[in-house]
Write a protein that binds this DNA or RNA. Structure first.
Lengths: 203, 203, 203, 203
DNA sequence: AATGAATGAGTATTCATTCAT
DNA sequence: GATGAATGAATACTCATTCAT
């Protein structure tokens, strides 16, 4: 039983991993299903056993990758809080943002791939498998942080949306093209901006 | 003499207009050059006489449309200032944002087409013809407004970048899918956010 | 098992045969891939499953056809030698030439198709599949004949090159246009010329 | 009068020269009429005033270039004969061949362009303008040389055909790819071969 | 669960040629 | 004689998808 299951999971992961490599190397539209299955060493039909179509595997990849970034930020924050238990909520948010931006700046290919779709994991997709189920947990995780220290906000959901969109939008051109400036130059403005955005949602 | 010139311009405009209609109706990648020329009533070769390729006409369209939105906002502001000469710079920025968002909300197809590329006219393209030349003037126009009343900022360029990216990123999902809320609900948060972002750049 | 293999081979051969017919009837550049697949009764994609592109099928055809001509000449020679074991090497070469020219004269379309590329099988192509592998053997076969009776030459490779180029160049216009004379008129001159060319390479 | 004539001739020559440059640089089929007229600085329609189509300008170019090579050889021979009045006809032919091959080896692009069509000027084309009329004179020139010293041959026309085809066929791959050997290595074999071919046509 | 041969609609792009001015 | 805007047929090649095995 488990053996066949493992085999399936391995094949699926191989397809995901290889297609991600190809997407980030050659670009999405220049990567064909043929390229993917050849790289993964499976037959063409097999691809369609595991994924509905090309967009389907792209969506899974975005969810998977953005989830990792978002959860990594949560972990970083938790570690920091264990040393500084008295952080304000705003400082916690800045910490999350810093982690996200730092992760992204280490992986410009991922930035290109996500293409400002960092928020994807939160909203745009029906929950079809475990990957997406976890993505939902991410959202909950963030709401929990917002409420830490009994902080209250005008609208938590809109606040998450606003800040996340702000980060992924501004960071995009800066990481990929260093335009209109490089990341280190922009970071202070960004953190100050986030701080101010928090104020905008403060009760 | 001018007759032939007029004829050319008319044909070019027809291609631009028809392709925009098709792009926003069927989507960009589902619109073929065949569709465009058929709709414009010209031969296929004619398309390639006026535009280098599909991306070329898309770029011209984005520049043209975003330029109109951006300039419309400037005009709206100027009209308002003629009645309220004492507006603060921040209020002027909010006015610009309001005009842009209002324009976009009236034309969701345009939002979809621009796909968060509102800033396109500002940065991403060499200046090759009159369309793009005007786009440059837009940028100057906005810098002028920032400096009205002798206001001073930490970095005008980064400020324009930050606010423009903020608007186009947040507005996108809201206008197209009313997610996570509709525009009227979001507007107060948005304006408050912009106000705060200005603070972040205030000297 | 073998069934699927047979089917593939049959389809491949059908493409080869039909494209040859079209190439020699309408001309190579006036034959489109559409024409070929329509004639072979397969889908367009199928063509590209079996051949890399148009030039690829042309190369295979040239190798295939020139190989047949060249090997046919070897067989003719072997049959003749079984009756006349004492042939001189020069007479053997004339015999080969006669067989080649006779074959070609029976098939002007092939002459046009090969377009002075008779030597193709010898030199110009990496050995990629069985067709081309055989082509290599042809070359060895000819070297063997040159060395029959212990004959020695200044340079066998250059000799084969010289004579093969001589035949394919002179025969071309004569078979296709009977210019500057017809083949029967030219043959004595040709054989005498070859005899003399052999002398030029005799040690 | 003459002025307009001169202008026409200049334009025609410009088209010929520029197209030759493009044909030998980019290749014939990769050179479009657009490329030619752009390079020559005339309008598209003008091309069709001077030449019937692409093949027409190619034919004129081949005639023009091969004529020059062939006449250059005649001049070289005449110069040599003024010093060595007692040359045998065979030596004269070798001298012609040497001149032709030397010219070609200095200009591989021309070899590629002529593509074994050196004999073109002699046979394949109706005489339509002065260029081609001259080409005919070339032929007469060569017959005259064959008859020098009262030499007699089985068939002068076939002899010219045979030797010319021999040269252009063998020299092609050698100059362009140094295959199967380089020109200096091949020259002795070539001259010996030509000498022998002359014997084949000797009465 | 996996294969891979077969599909065929679909696309962008080229270019020789024409003809009204 | 010259122009260049307009043509539109023609073509090679791709690729997501299916389905019999």
């Amino acid at each position: 039983m488990g053996k066949a299951e493992d085999n399936k999971r391995a094949k699926r992961n191989s397809l995901l991993q290889r297609s991600y490599d190809l997407f980030t190397t050659k670009g999405i539209s220049d990567t064909s299903i043929s390229d993917i299955v050849e790289s993964a060493g499976v037959a063409k039909g097999t691809f369609y056993f595991y994924f509905k179509d090309k967009q389907d595997i792209i969506d899974h990849l975005i969810a998977r990758k953005s989830e990792r970034i978002l959860l990594d930020a949560v972990n970083t924050l938790e570690f920091k809080r264990s040393n500084e238990p008295d952080m304000t909520t705003v400082d916690m948010i800045i910490t999350l943002a810093d982690s996200i931006v730092t992760d992204l700046s280490k992986d410009p290919k991922l930035v290109k791939f996500l293409n400002r779709n960092l928020t994807f994991g939160f909203y745009h997709r029906a929950v079809t498998d475990d990957t997406f189920i976890t993505a939902v947990n991410v959202h909950e995780e963030y709401e929990k942080i917002l409420h830490a220290n009994g902080a209250r906000w005008k609208d938590e959901s809109l606040m998450i949306y606003t800040i996340t969109e702000f980060i992924s939008a501004t960071v995009h051109s800066i990481i990929l093209y260093s335009k209109p400036c490089d990341l280190d130059t922009y970071k202070p403005y960004m953190f100050e901006s986030i701080r101010k955005l928090c104020e905008a949602f403060a009760l």
